[in-house]
């Protein structure tokens, strides 16, 4: 249980990744969801995570957002441990205060948007900057309006979420996450709950993000075409492990592992 005591207190050297999963294990009771996962994401890299349901891919994002605790290993963000903190020259599980400081590096968008229903689009975006970052209201408003403009939602800024379509809500949710200026953005099946005809308006926003921002991004998706278009790297998860990973053209065009081939052909048949 104390194996993490010997892990590095921070990552140093030439190519410190923005995110590093080091032997990360996650269990729910007797079920091992992730088994000694090792995964690096470089700064500015866009990594897509694909795989059958139950393969642990969403858990990867949720652990990184600190919505789930981990049962083994260490996650590092920007060279510093996230799940643990240095104490007396070794790593111990992070306390809430440390977690809160480190969490500022990470933003997340959810499958079901999770906008605050009692606030307008603009208020949703301003909430974090004002309450957490302590920005003056005017500055938070300017920043939020700029982002709502970018996601094409500026003319709906005073609407409550209940008045917005799924695609519109998700675009507001993206603006809300970006307003916190995270270094890492996580997208957890952000188009899965959307009607087919509005998926494009959300994927276009993400394309724009990739093109214009130098953000590190991790995306769990079922949209293979989108993942292929946009990612620097694709990871195929199977039974709690990375079965295969590589550049999108290689993984989709010429998968090496049998499970990857099976999965991709099953997805192709379904789509």
């Amino acid at each position: 249980m104390d194996e993490t005591a010997d892990y590095p207190l921070e990552l140093t050297g030439e190519d410190v990744p923005m995110v590093r999963f080091l032997n990360v294990t996650k269990r729910y009771g007797p079920l091992t969801v992730l088994d000694k996962l090792n995964l690096d994401v470089a700064e500015g890299e866009m990594v897509s995570v694909i795989g059958p349901s139950g393969s642990g891919k969403t858990t990867v994002l949720r652990m990184l957002m600190t919505l789930e605790t981990i049962n083994g290993g260490v996650i590092y963000v920007d060279g510093k441990p996230l799940t643990h903190m240095p104490k007396g020259g070794r790593l111990v599980p992070a306390d809430p205060r440390y977690l809160r400081r480190m969490r500022a590096n990470i933003g997340m968008c959810f499958q079901h948007f999770n906008l605050f229903p009692h606030m307008t689009a603009l208020q949703n975006c301003m909430e974090g900057p004002v309450q957490v970052l302590g920005l003056p209201k005017a500055e938070a408003r300017a920043r939020s309006e700029e982002l709502l403009e970018m996601v094409g939602m500026i003319d709906k800024k005073d609407q409550h979420p209940s008045r917005l379509s799924g695609g519109q809500q998700q675009r507001v949710a993206i603006a809300r996450a970006l307003a916190m200026r995270p270094k890492v953005m996580l997208f957890d099946e952000v188009t899965s709950a959307l009607d087919p005809e509005v998926i494009g308006e959300v994927t276009n926003v993400i394309r724009k993000l990739v093109a214009e921002f130098k953000l590190t991004m991790l995306m769990v998706t079922h949209q293979m075409g989108f993942a292929r278009d946009i990612s620097d790297r694709v990871c195929f998860f199977y039974a709690g492990r990375i079965e295969e990973q590589g550049p999108p053209d290689a993984l989709f065009g010429n998968p090496q592992r049998e499970r990857t081939q099976q999965f991709l052909s099953a997805v192709k048949d379904a789509g």
Partner: peptide
């Protein structure tokens, strides 16, 4: 539950 998770993702304090 998603509301709690969104609040965590925005790094809001427990009080807020």
């Amino acid at each position: 539950k998603g509301q709690w998770e969104a609040a965590t993702a925005l790094n809001l304090s427990t009080r807020d």
